[in-house]
């Protein structure tokens, strides 16, 4: 019930909601990009320097 009240109280105009969603999507994309570089990219330089970290975190490495 308390949460419901908070939701109503926090209701925002449409433009604010859209900018929130853009912010969330930007952060998620940034996270995925960094994760790809650190954990997935097979380019030799990235692979070699990230090698030990990938093994320690159990990312499929090579």
């Amino acid at each position: 019930m308390k949460n419901d009240v908070k939701v109503i109280a926090k209701a925002q105009p449409q433009s604010r909601i859209d900018s929130d969603l853009i912010g969330i999507a930007t952060a998620a994309l940034l996270g995925l990009f960094l994760l790809f570089a650190a954990g997935f990219a097979q380019a030799t330089v990235l692979h070699d320097t990230a090698h030990d970290q990938r093994h320690a975190m159990a990312f499929p490495c090579h």
């Binding site: 929130d20 999507a25 952060a27 995925l32 960094l34 970290q53």
Partner: peptide, 22 residues
């Protein structure tokens, strides 16, 4: 460099988790 990539990896997880918080 391993430590550097550890920071990048957890910052990446941090972005995804904080997007989830939002």
């Amino acid at each position: 460099t391993t430590a550097g990539f550890g920071i990048v990896t957890f910052t990446a997880f941090g972005f995804l988790m904080a997007a989830g918080f939002a």
